[in-house]
Nucleic acid binder design. Structure first.
Length: 223
DNA sequence: AAATTGTACAACCGCCCGGAG
DNA sequence: GCTCCGGGCGGTTGTACAATT
């Protein structure tokens, strides 16, 4: 059927953003909010595609972004999340406050992939490279199944028969961000897993009981 | 010092999904 | 139920900079 382009390409700038463009975008969003990205460039006086504005804002201009190097903790969390979620960068980013999907994706491709390869782990399957090489070609790209004690059924993927691992019913549920939080598209998703009827926060389901992301502890303290 | 190669990351492209009409 | 549109996502490319030869 074909789609109309998101903007008139003939009259839009491309490539790196200038300081002036950044300033225009920031001041417009501060004054009017994010609103409709399609009409925003015109309203803000920018010769940019709406998508480009959105990307620039979300990835680089938002005030709540945490710039700078990833910590070792963040590294490990990304690896664990990737082993469960695959290349669902936005979901992974949701668990890393201040980080964006694009940033994590780039970081994965440049740093973590190599780090895993150095450890002898296939970054696509999270299996030891020798084992991964011996795997049937039909092996799926994310593999929580290599951990024998943890064989989660990941409900958020719709339960493809190839991804179901029967032994342990570890359902992941994703709920909208907490309502009392300020509006933020990248507010971490609350992902709760239930194993054997016992509710675990997402951090615990990943084996990060002592992580600051663990909400079980906070809940149990409050009880 | 210049050329080449490698690395990091910003930005774009095209597709998919969900909501509105 | 269908179509269209806007937003969002993941993959890929482009480019600047660093390291090496």
């Amino acid at each position: 059927m074909g789609r109309s382009p998101c903007c008139e390409k003939a009259h839009t700038n491309k490539g790196a953003w200038t300081k002036e463009e950044d300033d225009r975008l920031i001041s417009y969003i501060r004054a009017h909010g994010e609103g409709c990205w399609r009409s925003l460039p015109k309203a803000a006086g920018l010769l940019r595609c709406g998508k480009s504005c959105r990307l620039r804002w979300i990835n680089y201009l938002r005030p709540d972004l945490k710039r700078g190097n990833f910590t070792e903790e963040e590294d490990e969390l990304i690896i664990k999340l990737h082993s469960l979620l695959g290349n669902k960068w936005s979901l992974i980013a949701g668990r890393l406050p201040g980080r964006t999907d694009n940033e994590i994706k780039n970081y994965w491709n440049t740093h973590i992939r190599r780090k895993l390869l150095n450890r002898g782990i296939d970054p696509a399957t999270h299996r030891p490279i020798n084992e991964a090489a011996a795997q049937d070609a039909t092996t799926i790209s994310f593999a929580a199944s290599d951990v024998k004690e943890e064989k989660p059924t990941i409900g958020i993927f719709g339960g493809s028969k190839d991804t179901k691992i029967p032994d342990l019913n570890l359902e992941l549920k994703i709920s909208p961000p907490c309502q009392n939080q300020p509006h933020d598209h990248h507010q971490p998703l609350k992902i709760i897993s239930t194993a054997g009827g016992k509710s675990l926060c997402f951090a615990c389901s990943l084996g990060l009981q002592n992580s600051k992301d663990c909400s079980c502890r906070a809940a149990s303290i409050g009880e």
